[in-house]
Simulated assay, not measured.
Amino acid sequence: MDNYIGIMSGTSLDGIDAVLVETDGERIRLRTRSGSPFEPGLRGRLLALADGGTVTAREWGELDAELGRAYAGVVLQLLAESGRQASDIRAIGCHGQTIWHQPDGPLPFSLQLGDGNRLAAETGITTINDFRRKDMALGGQGAPLVPAFHRQVLGGTDRVRLVVNIGGIANITVLTPDAPVLGYDVGPGNMLMDLWCQRHTGQPFDRDATLARQGRVLPALLTTLLAEPWLALPAPKSTGRELFNESWLDRQLTGDEAEADVQATLAEFTVTAIAHEAEKWPAGELLVCGGGGHNPLLLERLAALLPGWRVDTTNAVGVDMDAMEAMAFAWLAHQTLHGLAGNLPAVTGARRPAILGAIHLPG
């Protein structure tokens, strides 16, 4: 098996996750995981851009280069921690930082920043990025891309198994015996909860659901949130900060709600949207990965809303919930270098399977 590095920075913009794995495409073993928070100034500029702010061409280019350099720094840190050399690594698979994702309309597109050329040059490792746009060129949503990896590491189940990644956005993978894999975005994961917590406490997220537990769910607000038309769209579908952002949230509020009550209601919004999707399937196993797996309130409420289901994190079945997405992009790098498809048309809606990504050589 060869060594690959996977890099992920998600819609919550909380930092960069990197993993070193061994894989032959069939088997995958996590060897080392590392990460780094975004430098505050870089995070602020990325957030402003992702929320629809305007930038000059120069600012755009500088952000792309700065983010590529930040990714390279995390890779070099990972190599140092693992005792490996660049020559030991076959390739890096880097998702990049999504700035705008527009999967519908006359000209669908998705933009991720993080200069792959710079990442390859500064690490000395072949780098593959820009995974979404080939799928979109073939009529797909370009997301989610992780269900193919979920099938690889968590498939073969004899009952319904749902893998729910609760990152900034929540997405679901449906693994059922003898049936095609399904997967799609469900709605906000941590994004709105993090935004509200940062606004009112200055903390990047609601650790241990401390703020949410001080409040109570507001039924009227929850009903308003769940009335968002996007939630009722059929799959394939994907979304992001372009829809579920600060402006969207503020439009749902009267301004009279207590801070803790809003936090509690946002948590309930996330789990209710997930539970509504799970209820479409016979009771089985729901496994959470991503940052939401550390929120005890989300896990408690999912279990309460889904009696008869086993609710746990992917740690319980041997896959590190914090490493899952970065591992997926390491695996996708393997797929690309071996001329193998990385997308699932049943998930994204693309016309056919496709080799994904752009390859940047270090020389």
Rank of each mutant, 00 (worst) to 15 (best):
W281G: 01
A260E: 15
M1Y: 01
R207T: 08
G61A: 10
N129A: 15
V181C: 04
D51T: 07
A220C: 03
E122T: 09
P144W: 03
A65T: 00
I89V: 14
N117W: 09
E277C: 12
L243Y: 08
P204C: 10
M136P: 13
R241T: 14
G52F: 04
S247D: 13
L266F: 13
G363D: 15
G10F: 10
H150W: 02
V347L: 06
G52C: 08
W100T: 14
I92G: 05
V146E: 00
V21G: 01
V163H: 02
G68L: 06
R199V: 05
E285M: 07
L211Y: 10
P296S: 13
I169R: 00
T313E: 03
Q263V: 14
Q203I: 08
P144H: 02
A358T: 15
D194C: 12
G142K: 05
P345S: 07
G61S: 09
L30W: 01
G35H: 02
Q152T: 07
G142F: 03
T201W: 03
L249Q: 13
N117C: 12
R241L: 13
N295V: 12
P106M: 00
G10M: 10
W309N: 05
Q141P: 09
L20S: 06
D194V: 12
G93D: 01
L305E: 12
I169S: 06
V146F: 02
A323H: 02
D130H: 14
D17Q: 07
E259D: 14
P103C: 03
P362I: 01
T270V: 14
W196H: 11
D17R: 01
T348G: 07
K280M: 11
Q85F: 00
T157V: 15
R352E: 08
E228A: 10
R352H: 06
Q214S: 14
T127Q: 06
Q252N: 10
L332D: 06
G61P: 03
P144L: 01
G41W: 08
I128H: 04
W100Q: 15
P345H: 12
R133W: 03
R58V: 09
S12A: 13
L231C: 04
W248C: 07
L344Y: 00
R151I: 01
E279S: 11
N245P: 13
I274Q: 14
G290Q: 09
A330S: 04
R69G: 10
R43K: 15
P345V: 08
R241A: 12
H334S: 00
A350K: 06
Q97H: 15
K134G: 03
M327H: 02
Q141I: 04
L225R: 08
A316V: 03
A258F: 06
S247H: 13
D130M: 10
A267T: 15
E122G: 10
V217G: 09
N190G: 13
A65Y: 03
Q198K: 14
Q252D: 08
N190S: 12
H294F: 14
R27C: 05
L340K: 13
L332T: 05
D261W: 15
E39L: 12
A72E: 09
